[in-house]
Design a protein around this nucleic acid. Sequence first.
DNA 1: CAAGATTGAACTTTCAATCTTC
DNA 2: GAAGATTGAAAGTTCAATCTTG
Lengths: 162, 162
Amino acid sequence: MAATSPTAALTDVSTAIDAFVRLLRANAAVTRRLSTQLTADHGLSLSAYEALLVLSRSEEGMRRVDLADDLLLTAGGVTRLLDGLERDGLVARRQCDTDRRVSYAVLTETGRDRLRRASESHTRQIGELMGAALDGEQLAQLAGLLDRIPGVDPTSASCTPE
Amino acid sequence: MAATSPTAALTDVSTAIDAFVRLLRANAAVTRRLSTQLTADHGLSLSAYEALLVLSRSEEGMRRVDLADDLLLTAGGVTRLLDGLERDGLVARRQCDTDRRVSYAVLTETGRDRLRRASESHTRQIGELMGAALDGEQLAQLAGLLDRIPGVDPTSASCTPE
DNA sequence: CAAGATTGAACTTTCAATCTTC
DNA sequence: GAAGATTGAAAGTTCAATCTTG
């Protein structure tokens, strides 16, 4: 597939579309599977897990805006996600002393426990699914390629608590 | 599978998690952007576009179950997606003569026009977004890696009408 | 009974409007 | 007025139950 001829531009576009479609399908396939398992085993959605994980890395808690940035959600989405986690006692709310507009979300002990338990099977399942057809080198390559897409990288993080 | 030494397994898992997180983020970033543009410019969701595209490749129409497979949606999801497209006159319903359980979905002329118009800017935007940081070779590599993930490939298709 | 399709209830997320505090 | 957060309405999906036809 050398892209040298006058059709070069066309080739690039259809290659881009191809990659795009695979991205959509891969996301759908992977999230459906993992989300089902996570819900059945631990009563957590994928987003809930990611939120607990992010919170687990900050002792003092996080502002909701920052959480939204990290999770690639809107402000409203974060409010509703945290609503559920608070209701379940996994996250608590802490006021900011210097700015009464902001409220921090902090992981409770219950939340930390739940995350710890969930991470065991969840990470194993990710490993099984992603590792089923890709070896370590290919996985690293995949991550590197995806990272180049605008909006993906923001110095994003690992996925295990601690 | 080379999960031999104690550290080998660990390394593989965290690499897998890394790739997984990038996949989620990449999907979120890319779909949000493209979906917004597609909706604003042509009044189509990403799923609606994909549905029209799939239908455009079959003259006689498609069974709803098969459409669900192609689009990685559930049966109920397809019913509701097509409801909207029918309401807008982009898709019509055709009965099956030999099996009265099945109903075919066929693209209308209006639907074909709408797809044609939308595909122009949509494919260009995909090219811009995906091509912004990845060259042709990298895009092909990315598609190839994603294709290996279970459930992604089903001999899936290109993305332009005709 | 199985397969195709639909429907009601629920979930997750977004958008736009709003409230409070800076 | 701008920033952080919340809320009502709506979109898009899923699941489980149901209906119809095979």
